[in-house]
Amino acid sequence: MQETMIDIAVIGAGITGLVCARQLQQAGYQVVVLEKSRGLGGRVATRRLEGTWADHGTRYLEPQGKWTEQLIQSLSDRGIVHLWTKQLYQYAEGELSPQEPRPCYVAKDGITAIAKELGAGLTIQRQQRVIAITPNAGHWSLTFEGSGVDPLPPLQVRAVVVAIPTPQALMLLEPLSQEGLPEELLTTLRSVEFDPCFSAIATYAPNRVAELENLPWRGVLFRDDADLSWVGLESSKQRTTQQSVVVVQSSAQFATKYLEATDLQPIGQQLLTRAAETLLPWLDAPTVLQVHRWRYALTRTPLSTGCLATTNPLPLVCGGDWCSSNNLESALKSGIATAHEMNQRLDQRSLPILTFA
């Protein structure tokens, strides 16, 4: 990777970054995806547990527009996802009630299967955190910090796509204001605000499996609750399992209160206690509890554009679901828009129509 100039580096292996890289590679560009974590997908995340798994970020797939409909159809045709439920419930004002029916899909091996499909065939360097982007003699030079692995040597590229949450993007881009990066772009990035979330991933004794299977609900959305936003029966997504797994997600208000906590176990226990008070009394007594902090879970103030782009000082495009909303459809659309804008600033090749086959 160091012997020749790479066309495009995509920073971030979330859905937007993967879609963008996929499009540009299919157009003939040499593309490398750089990801600071071990896994792909960003918030489209699955936690592997002993003998089972849990989706602790994005909860399920649902048709939200043209691109999510095509994605679901393609993954369904290949047996990667299946219908989980048509009936979610909501908890509001002390009452549990069914919502309007709508199809919700899940992957048989966890929702990260979506990212794995989108990333198939791409060159992806994992556990490589980009810590600096600098212009150097007509190209970008990227510097790395390895996370559990040796960092890559500095990488030379013609152009950069930044597909990560805006606070992380700003840490890389603000130093470039002295190199000619437009202040307007930085100001726009600063205007995007995020809400955090905690996910409590709880495993229970095998004798709870039958009880969970007999519940009328698979997932519960909490409306205007001070502590909770979601309770999902993760084990119900798996067609064969002998374990009971539940994911409880916090409200933004709760997560903001405890965002900088160093010990996450008590935070997860609080969420389980609250879920036990409203849904099932035994939810506060798991056999195993893991907690994940999502610092940038949902976009509170999204933009109204597919991406942000500049050629000063060199070609650079920023994208993510924060460009227009905070859902999967927005991430897919931003990936397409980002690829288009980057292509316009480089060789203006013929970009293929996005497919998920």
Rank of each mutant, 00 (worst) to 15 (best):
Y60I: 04
W67M: 15
A54P: 00
W67G: 00
L71W: 06
S74E: 03
L61R: 01
S74V: 07
G51E: 01
R48K: 14
Y60M: 12
T46H: 06
I80H: 09
L83N: 04
G65A: 07
L61T: 00
T46C: 09
G65E: 02
R48T: 13
W53F: 15
T52K: 04
H82N: 10
L75G: 04
K66Q: 13
D77F: 04
R47A: 12
Y60K: 00
S76D: 04
R47C: 08
K66C: 01
W67L: 15
R48Q: 14
H56I: 12
S74W: 02
P63F: 00
P63S: 07
L71N: 04
T52G: 11
I72K: 01
T68I: 03
D55A: 12
W53P: 11
H56S: 10
I72D: 04
L83I: 06
R78L: 11
H82S: 13
S74G: 02
R48I: 12
L83W: 01
L49I: 10
H82Q: 09
T46P: 01
S74N: 03
H82E: 09
S74I: 09
Q73T: 13
L71T: 00
S76E: 08
R48G: 05
E69N: 08
R59S: 14
I80K: 15
K66D: 13
S74D: 06
L83C: 11
S76W: 03
D55M: 10
K66H: 13
Y60C: 14
V81Q: 03
W53S: 09
T68Q: 02
L61C: 05
K66M: 13
T68G: 06
Q73K: 14
D55Y: 10
V81L: 06
L83F: 05
L75T: 00
D77E: 10
E62C: 10
T68C: 08
G57Y: 04
I72M: 01
R78C: 12
E50T: 10
E69G: 12
E50G: 00
T46L: 11
W67I: 00
L49T: 02
Y60R: 09
W53E: 06
R48E: 11
H56A: 12
Q64F: 01
E69L: 13
Q70M: 11
R59K: 06
R78M: 13
P63E: 05
L61Q: 02
S74Q: 06
T46K: 08
H82A: 14
R48Y: 09
T46S: 15
H56F: 14
Q73G: 12
G65L: 06
E69M: 12
Q64M: 13
D55T: 08
L61W: 01
Q73W: 08
Q73L: 15
G79H: 04
V81K: 01
E62I: 04
R59L: 15
P63Y: 01
L61F: 03
Q70F: 03
K66W: 07
Q70S: 13
L83H: 06
I72A: 03
E62K: 05
G65K: 03
G57Q: 07
W67R: 15
E50L: 15
